[in-house]
Design a protein around this nucleic acid. Structure first.
Length: 784
DNA sequence: CATTAGAATAACACC
DNA sequence: TATTCTAATG
């Protein structure tokens, strides 16, 4: 049972077409065409045959795409259920649904087959699950389950986990799945590279999945692909149903998705792909830019439309972005232009370290919020910080928490990935389907029931011996008296509870009350209530929220289905907040003001990308830079730090090569007044410090980025003055202005070993251990 | 069996 | 640094 409205879609198509309704639709005017530019209009009106829409950043591609859907419907070319529209993220799907709805008004209920590859695949797979050996109520595993299962497979094959880390194997298998390689199709060359063990484990893993009646994310696509390939009749059925296909973000499709689409489009060729090769940033998860580059070969006679007029950004932002992306080779090439010439140049600023960078950006955000320099005040909702890697977010969160600046992290640790939520969900899963062994494993000893490794192994063995699921296995084991003293009673209670809850699900009891009952009776809530760690209250809060989220569903099954695919969390908050997200997460979004911190070699471009994929990796990083800059409508601020903590170790950083690739005429180099004592042309760097730091500094000063800053009168960190006590690499002197997380700013009045007497401006005098405070004037405190 | 201390290891992120 | 895994202890 799924929460999808799949049956509606199918029934509607089963009914003979009603020419009347088509004509009725066709008779309506076409307001959705108003205001489209010629290129957009061409893309919208070329309904039949293959179309490739090359849509640069901010060129109104979503608009064109939605107008195209509206056009298909209004002209009567297709009924809503005859359109297949694929997006990459749920966010994009949601937005498109909304916009189609707005364009169509009351005319159309919605386009049922609009969703992500995965969501659509699930719908299809549920109908034909038996063709690949699954039952239609299969569970969808997330990455976490996947890894745990992988561990079992590795253990079962009695292989040294050290040699075959489960994570790595999971990654390998994922990559194969992305390339549409089932175990039997993995090329011998790759299999041999891993002693053919890799494919064996892959096969074993797939078998385990079937045993568990489960599919991982990759399977969702791959199974459907297999069905299409092996069952011509099923394929033809879908080819008939999906008369028009639209694909968003085509540059990010992987091989499996590509084949999936090609099979469906084979018959009628009515496929419209929208993409931008310059925004292909998912190579590491199997995306093939090649797909978009060879579209015209795949679909001969394809009409190619270029959307090049940018409606989003100022001329400077566009110019800077174009300058950077020009460094890539083998592009399809587009010339973006805008009527909005001028505007503010990009701002470039270097900082001494990451904290300093966060501090500066925080102040800058507050300044933008106040307005000033002639520009009107901006809402926090209009600003975003885009980082390369999620761990960079921390510095900002820390800083914003201390200054009380509201922020939201987008795509950070998600609600549904939290420990307590996953535990609770496992309880629900087990109550809904007692066959869910992974869920059983997760909760059988959570809270602690005295059922450790040994007891669980016994359960496993019993279950296997009798060919039962773990829950039943446990029941048998208990009956046989295989569990010793204290565990036995608790296990019995657990099983009985599960029986009760399962019966309640079957009866169709109110699912919200049931969820509360489950969490209550299982002792799960009590476990957190008894927990005295600081995060426990938050976890309880989350559990409450989880129960509340159930309200929008009819039953637990529907909820679980939803959560498996929609792992995002739009809590519908209304307070103004700055957004913090990764560059990947920012794709498709736009903000008036964008901050791009951390433009440093090794961080961005990421060392790992370059190590693993060489020049290809670097080019993808460059596209990421392009994506970042083009998110900005009015103001884009790029920054880098000379020092950064990596795994807790201080490292000196070089400005990113992308900094040097920014065309000068579009960039202003900033020096924040008062933050750097020295200003440009200040005396030599640190008098005498360690050799590494001298070398590092020399590098920084020799890098083109710093040179240019210098040439333009840019920032340079002041040399720390001679200091008194040195504590753990941190130097403070009498009278230094310092900052403490809790007490705020203050001045050092005395030094006693590693303890400082500090007169805080707000909190008064305190004695503080030196490592709890940082220097408030940027450059002085950095250990190097 | 649970707890804990120390060591190892880790960081691109979508469904 | 922060989490997670392993081994050793109670």
């Amino acid at each position: 049972m799924s929460s999808f409205d799949e049956d509606d879609a199918f029934e509607a198509t089963a009914v003979p077409r009603v020419p009347l309704s088509r004509r009725a639709m066709a008779a309506r005017p076409a307001p959705y065409l108003d205001g489209l530019n010629p290129a957009q209009r061409a893309a919208v009106e070329a309904l039949d045959g293959p179309v490739l829409m090359l849509a640069g950043a901010g060129t109104g591609k979503t608009r064109a795409l939605t107008a195209r859907i509206a056009h298909l419907l209004m002209t009567g070319r297709a009924l809503p259920n005859e359109i297949l529209a694929v997006t990459f993220t749920n966010k994009a799907a949601r937005e498109m649904k909304e916009r189609v709805g707005r364009l169509m008004g009351e005319t159309v209920e919605g386009v049922p087959w609009l969703g992500t590859f995965h969501a659509i695949s699930v719908k299809i797979l549920r109908r034909h699950a038996e063709l690949v050996g699954l039952k239609s109520n299969f569970t969808i595993l997330d990455t976490d389950d996947q890894i745990r299962l992988m561990k079992q497979v590795i253990a079962a094959a009695s292989i040294d986990e050290k040699r075959w880390p489960s994570r790595q194997l999971a990654g390998l298998i994922d990559a194969w799945k992305n390339r549409a390689l089932t175990p039997d199709r993995v090329p011998a060359s790759e299999a041999s590279a891993f002693n053919s063990l890799g494919t064996e484990l892959y096969a074993a893993y797939q078998q385990r999945l079937l045993d568990l009646n489960a599919a991982d994310f990759g399977d969702l696509l791959l199974h459907v692909l297999t069905i299409f390939q092996k069952h011509q009749d099923v394929l033809e059925q879908y080819q008939r149903w999906f008369r028009y296909i639209l694909v968003d973000e085509y540059q990010d499709t992987n091989v499996a998705q590509y084949l999936w689409l090609r099979l469906l489009a084979q018959a009628h060729h009515n496929i419209c792909c929208v993409g931008d090769d310059d925004q292909s940033i998912y190579g590491w998860r199997g995306a093939e830019v090649g797909n978009i580059l060879r579209f015209e070969k795949d679909f001969p006679g394809a009409k190619v439309v270029r959307l090049e007029q940018n409606y989003r950004s100022t001329g400077h932002i566009l110019g800077a972005a174009s300058g950077v992306i020009a460094g890539n080779e083998g592009r399809l090439g587009k010339t973006l232009w805008t009527e909005a010439e001028g505007g503010e140049k990009l701002r470039l600023i270097g900082h001494w370290d990451g904290e300093e960078e966060a501090r500066w950006i925080g102040e800058e955000i507050e300044a933008l919020q106040r307005g000033g320099r002639g520009s009107p005040p901006k809402s926090l909702d209009d600003m975003a910080i885009l980082v390369r890697a999620s761990h960079q977010m921390r510095a900002f969160e820390d800083r914003f928490l201390t200054i009380g600046l509201p922020y939201r992290v987008i795509g950070g640790p998600r609600f549904y990935e939290r420990l307590e939520i996953r535990d609770a969900m496992a309880y629900f899963r087990l109550a809904v389907s007692p066959d869910d062994d992974l869920a059983f494993e997760r909760v059988v000893n959570t809270p602690k029931r005295g059922l450790g490794d040994k007891a669980q192994q016994k359960i496993q063995a019993t279950a296997r011996a009798h060919g039962l699921n773990l829950l039943e296995g446990a029941r048998v084991l208990l009956a046989e008296g295989g569990v010793s003293g204290k565990g036995a009673g608790q296990l019995r209670a657990f099983i009985e509870g599960m029986d009760r809850w399962h019966a309640a699900v079957a009866r169709g009891d109110n699912h919200i009350e049931l969820a509360e009952t489950i969490l209550d009776e299982s002792g799960y809530t009590a476990m957190w209530q008894a927990d005295k760690t600081p995060e426990a209250p938050g976890r309880l809060e989350n559990l409450k929220e989880l129960v509340k989220a159930l309200e929008s569903f009819d039953n637990l099954q529907g909820f679980l289905e939803h959560v498996a695919l929609i792992m995002d969390n739009d809590s519908g908050e209304t307070e103004e907040k700055v957004s913090i997200m990764t560059l990947h997460g920012a794709k498709g979004l736009e903000f008036p003001a964008i901050f791009l911190p951390g433009w440093e070699e090794g961080l961005f471009p990421s060392q790992r990308s370059m190590d693993e994929s060489g020049k290809k990796g670097l080019e993808e990083e460059r596209r990421l830079a392009y994506v970042g800059i083009t998110r900005a409508k009015e103001l884009c601020t790029i920054s880098f730090a000379a020092n950064r903590r990596v795994y807790g170790q201080w490292q000196s950083q070089l400005p990113s090569r992308f900094v040097d690739e920014l065309p000068e005429e579009h960039v202003d180099v900033l020096t924040p007044p008062g933050l750097y004592g020295g200003g440009f042309g200040a005396a030599a760097p640190v008098a005498e410090s360690t050799i590494e730091s001298r070398a590092a500094r020399a590098d920084v000063y020799n890098s083109p980025g710093w040179k240019r800053m210098q040439a333009q009168g840019g920032a340079r960190p002041a040399a720390p003055a001679a200091r008194g006590t040195v504590i753990e690499g941190t130097a403070f002197g009498l009278g230094d202005r310092v900052f403490h997380q809790k007490f705020g700013y203050g001045a050092v009045t005395a030094i006693d070993g590693d303890k400082l007497d500090i007169a805080f401006e707000k909190a008064g005098p305190k004695k503080i251990v030196a490592r709890f405070v940082t220097s408030a004037d940027s450059a002085a405190d950095i250990p190097f």
